[in-house]
Each structure stands twice: as C-alpha cells, then as structure tokens.
C-alpha cells in the first residue's frame, strides 16, 4: 500500500524537528523498511497506524520512530586512518599543552559504542595512564536502544573482528558465550549518556577532543551549522574536532578552521 502524502509529510516534519534528519521525496521505502518493525512492536498494521498514533501525541511512538530512523552504522576503529592520526598527531599535540595531565573526550553520535571503546583501547595501548595521565570519555547518542547495547559492551564475532586487530581483541575482550565482551578496564573508561544534538550540548562542559564522524551528513544545512557551532563552543581553546574525512561542513561559518595535516580535523577559528 502506498503511503499517503499527508502521512509522508508528517514523518518528514517530525524527523526534521526531533532529530534533524532530512527525508527527501522518494524515500518512502526507507520509512517502510525501518518502521515496519516499530509498527509490529506497537501492534499497528502499517505506517498509517504509526502516523495516527503520532498525531494522537504518543510519546513512545514518537521516540521509537526517531530511534528507528537514526543511522547506527559503526565499527571498531572505523576507517583506521582517524585513529592513526589521533595516535601519531592529535593526542601527542594535545598532551604537549596540558600541564594538568587530563583529557576530556566526547564521542558524539556514538551508536553502539564501538568508536568510544576504540578510543579507550587506543589510549590504553598508548600507555598514557602509566605516565600519570587521566582521561574521561563521554559517549552520547539520541537512541536509548543503541545506548543499551553500548553499555552492555558485548559484540558478535562479526562486529568485533570488523575493526579490532586480533592482538587487540585478545588484550581487551573476553569470550562470553558466543559473544565478545569488552573487558572492564576498557568498558569502565567510557560513560554513556542519551543526548539529542539538536538540544544543545553546552551543559556537557568543554572537551579536548570531540569525534562526531558521519553524523552531520544526515542533517539539513541549517541544522548542520547549528550543531557544528555547538560543537565548536564545547571545544577547549586548542581542542580538536574530528569529523568524517569525506564531510564538507560549513566550518568557517561555524567558527572553525581546518587542522593542518589531520584529515577531518578542525580547531576553533578566530574569536571566542
């Protein structure tokens, strides 16, 4: 059955308002493929039924629709290069300028936690704790559902080996039934928290390093600029924002400038 145009527009409006997600005409198939499981869970027959409940003001339905439409694609040490850049350039540079030997790191749009745990593994293996350094890693996502998985820190063999080198797997994971569980020394280094980036992030404080890779690409131009400006305001004076290497954000308008030699890396531009 085709989706009624008024229902499609309702989903477009709701998703843009609640999560900044842009849905274009012709993407009805995406709604169907992602929302039919939601319809099943709520005991309604189809997308019309979902739209009806949203119009009636069901907060549970609204939350589940937003969560189901969010993209949670991720993997450990995704793309490799950003982690090499962090190890070789970004983290050593940050450490040279911090007398208090403390780093605050934020993984924004962390999905099921692989990026945040990858950071924890990287920092652990760099051995900076033995040099007296402390680090906090905060990981946030809009979806409660993926955060539960992230906190559980258990992954299938498929998920684990999609990024984790075998020696790293042996150091930082343990087999638990058919899954691979992140060991406590890595798991406990990450704190998870639900956050919608559209709601602002000033209350989180400032960070030395923010990773927000392949998140902004799902937003429209105005939302992208607004979120990027927020991320900038959360950076410490010489902090680094790392976006996806292929992203082309409105960096200058958001008060950011490219960080030389670091693909996808940005620092605060002029002014406060």
């Amino acid at each position: 059955m085709n989706l009624h145009p008024q229902d499609f527009l309702l989903f477009v409006d709701v998703l843009r308002r609640e999560s900044g997600l842009v849905l274009d005409p012709g993407q009805e198939y995406l709604l169907k493929s992602r929302l039919m499981p939601v319809a099943d869970r709520h005991g309604v027959d189809n997308l019309e039924g979902i739209a009806r409940e949203i119009r009636m003001g069901s907060p549970d339905m609204l939350r589940d629709v937003v969560e189901a439409m969010s993209t949670h694609e991720t993997s450990f040490f995704r793309d490799l290069l950003p982690f090499r850049q962090l190890q070789d350039k970004v983290l050593p540079a940050l450490m040279r300028t911090r007398d208090d030997k403390a780093l605050r790191i934020w993984s924004a749009g962390c999905a099921s936690g692989q990026e945040a745990y990858s950071l924890a593994m990287l920092l652990h293996d760099m051995g900076i704790a033995h040099q007296g350094w402390k680090y906090d890693i905060l990981a946030t996502d809009i979806s409660h559902q993926v955060l539960e998985k992230a906190k559980a820190a258990r992954y299938t063999a498929f998920e684990a080996q999609r990024g984790v080198p075998a020696p790293t797997l042996l150091r930082h994971f343990t087999r638990m039934d058919e899954q691979w569980a992140v060991k406590p020394h890595i798991r406990d280094a990450v704190k998870f928290r639900q956050l919608n980036l559209l709601d602002g992030a000033g209350h989180l404080g400032r960070f030395d390093l923010i990773l927000c890779r392949n998140v902004l690409i799902y937003f429209d131009a105005a939302t992208r600029l607004s979120v990027l400006s927020d991320l900038r305001s959360c950076l410490n004076r010489d902090g680094v924002l790392l976006l996806g290497a292929a992203e082309t954000p409105p960096a200058e308008a958001a008060g950011l400038k490219l960080l030389d030699g670091v693909m996808g890396g940005y620092v605060r531009g002029g002014g406060e």
Partner: peptide, 8 residues
C-alpha cells in the same frame, strides 16, 4: 566472514 572483514 564478509567483504568488510576481509578488507579490514
């Protein structure tokens, strides 16, 4: 395994 894992 799949293509992603091999590539990685």
């Amino acid at each position: 395994f799949d293509r992603d894992i091999l590539k990685t």
